[in-house]
């Protein structure tokens, strides 16, 4: 079959809502875009463990401690599902991990902000996971089978993350004046990064047209962002908190909340590596990989010595 014909047939499959599976023919660009998106997503889950992990040892009650541990552990699991999904595209996990450790691949910029108080753990669960869930529910409808299946599983597991975050914030907001201040302060710091996190506006999103044509993404960044804002503003009000945006208003006609200008300069500055914690986060992950190397070497050596049959089969 000619390349053009294959491409047309591929587009037909996509348009008719069929899922593409790993061994199917796919255009190189499709493979590239997916590899990029899924790896970024996987890295985000892994780097995302760091800011939250920062408060595990200081969680203020044992109930909060186990919930946070379980949540951060879920993110490791989600990173793992996603690395498996990206491996179906013909790259290895080690390769894609090296890409972000060496600064050649991106991950969600929001994890380059510091978690400064306990309330930040609430803010991450509420805002960051809130935005992520909307995005991921959309991605679960995407055209690539392994990615979409990983998303379904992840969305199912993440529904508790969002709630535990809101519960933390809500509890603080109803607590002592100091606690309420802590919650408001966290919202003040996380609001802008949160509304930026689903990505730049549609007219400035370099990959959007292509990924939407192939239904890797089925809705645009602007649509997702607006949905997040519409859901989150009333939740803030219910907790008695103020969204840090004096131009925020409800548009009766459209039924949407409208925000003041979003600081895209800030967004690009952090994406390009100059957020408060970019270097620290990457260094932490490099250390973990480096520190783990001897353990993995030992596991490999031991398996070999034991003459485990799987290894002989794969060598």
């Amino acid at each position: 079959m000619e390349e053009q014909e294959k491409l047309a047939r591929f587009q037909e499959r996509i348009d008719s809502g069929q899922k593409i599976e790993p061994k199917d023919w796919m255009p190189e660009r499709y493979r590239k875009q997916l590899t990029r998106m899924i790896s970024q997503h996987a890295h985000s889950e892994i780097v995302g463990m760091l800011p939250e992990g920062n408060w595990i040892t200081r969680a203020p009650s044992l109930r909060r401690k186990v919930a946070l541990l379980a949540k951060v552990q879920d993110e490791a699991g989600h990173g793992l599902y996603l690395y498996s999904a990206v491996e179906t595209l013909g790259v290895t996990r080690e390769d894609v991990i090296n890409e972000y450790l060496e600064g050649r691949a991106k991950y969600s910029s929001i994890f380059n902000y510091p978690t400064l108080t306990w309330a930040d753990i609430g803010a991450i669960g509420w805002l960051v996971d809130g935005a992520a869930i909307i995005n991921q529910t959309m991605l679960a409808r995407g055209s690539y089978g392994p990615y979409s299946r990983a998303m379904v599983r992840i969305c199912k597991e993440e529904s508790f993350h969002n709630r535990q975050g809101y519960e933390i914030i809500y509890t603080l907001a109803q607590g002592t004046p100091e606690q309420k201040q802590m919650a408001q302060d966290a919202l003040n710091r996380w609001w802008q990064p949160a509304i930026q996190m689903v990505g730049p506006p549609d007219d400035n999103s370099p990959n959007s047209a292509e990924t939407m044509r192939w239904q890797i993404k089925v809705e645009s960044n602007d649509v997702i962002r607006q949905r997040f804002i519409d859901r989150t503003v009333p939740q803030a009000h219910a907790a008695g908190l103020t969204i840090p945006d004096d131009q925020l208003k409800f548009n009766e006609e459209t039924g949407h909340w409208e925000t003041g200008p979003i600081d895209w300069d800030e967004f690009w500055r952090v994406v390009k590596g100059n957020g408060p914690c970019n270097r620290q986060r990457i260094q932490d992950r490099i250390n973990a990989e480096r520190e783990g190397q001897w353990v993995l070497d030992a596991a490999a050596a031991y398996a070999k010595k034991q003459g485990k049959k799987q290894l002989t089969l794969t060598e």
Binding site: S84, E87, T92, R93, E94, D95, I97, N98, L101, E102, I286, E289, R290, Q293, L296, D297, A299, A300, Q310, L311, T314
Partner: peptide
């Protein structure tokens, strides 16, 4: 040099 060696994480199951 790469941070993670090829195959460092074992094989895929």
């Amino acid at each position: 040099m790469s941070h993670v060696k090829e195959g460092a994480h074992g094989i895929l199951w």
